[in-house]
Amino acid sequence: MPRVVVNVMLKPEILDPQGEAVVNALPRLGVSGVSTVRIGKRIELEFADDLDEETVRERAAEAADKLLSNPVIEDFELHIEAVEPAP
Rank of each mutant, 00 (worst) to 15 (best):
G33V: 08
G33Q: 10
G33Y: 13
G33N: 14
G33H: 04
V34Q: 12
S35Y: 08
S35L: 11
S35V: 12
T36N: 04
T36E: 14
V37S: 08
V37A: 06
V37H: 03
V37M: 11
R38V: 12
R38L: 11
R38D: 15
I39Y: 09
I39H: 06
G40P: 02
K41Q: 11
K41C: 09
K41H: 15
K41V: 15
K41M: 10
K41I: 15
K41N: 14
R42S: 06
R42Y: 08
R42H: 07
R42C: 08
I43G: 14
I43S: 00
E44V: 04
E44M: 06
L45D: 05
E46F: 07
E46C: 04
F47Q: 01
F47W: 04
F47N: 09
F47D: 04
A48C: 02
A48K: 13
D49C: 02
D49A: 11
D49L: 02
D49V: 07
D50L: 03
D50V: 05
D50M: 01
D50G: 04
L51Y: 00
L51N: 00
D52A: 03
D52Q: 05
E53Y: 01
E53W: 08
E53S: 03
E53R: 08
E54P: 00
E54T: 03
E54H: 04
T55P: 00
V56K: 03
V56R: 02
V56M: 01
V56F: 00
V56E: 01
R57L: 07
R57Y: 02
E58K: 11
E58Q: 13
E58Y: 10
E58G: 02
R59F: 05
R59T: 05
R59I: 02
A60Y: 03
A61P: 04
A61L: 07
A61K: 02
E62P: 03
E62M: 06
E62S: 02
A63D: 03
A63T: 07
A64Y: 01
A64P: 05
A64K: 01
D65P: 00
D65W: 09
D65C: 12
K66G: 01
K66E: 06
L67H: 05
L68W: 07
L68C: 03
S69I: 05
S69F: 04
N70I: 04
N70C: 00
N70K: 08
N70M: 00
P71V: 12
P71T: 14
P71L: 12
V72M: 15
V72L: 13
V72C: 11
V72E: 12
V72D: 07
I73A: 10
I73C: 00
I73Y: 06
E74W: 09
E74L: 12
E74P: 13
E74S: 10
E74F: 12
E74N: 10
D75E: 15
D75H: 14
D75N: 15
F76K: 08
F76V: 12
F76H: 06
F76A: 02
E77Q: 05
E77G: 09
E77H: 10
E77K: 13
E77L: 11
E77Y: 01
E77N: 13
E77S: 02
L78S: 10
L78E: 08
H79N: 12
H79L: 13
H79D: 11
I80K: 03
E81N: 08
E81V: 07
E81Q: 10
E81K: 13
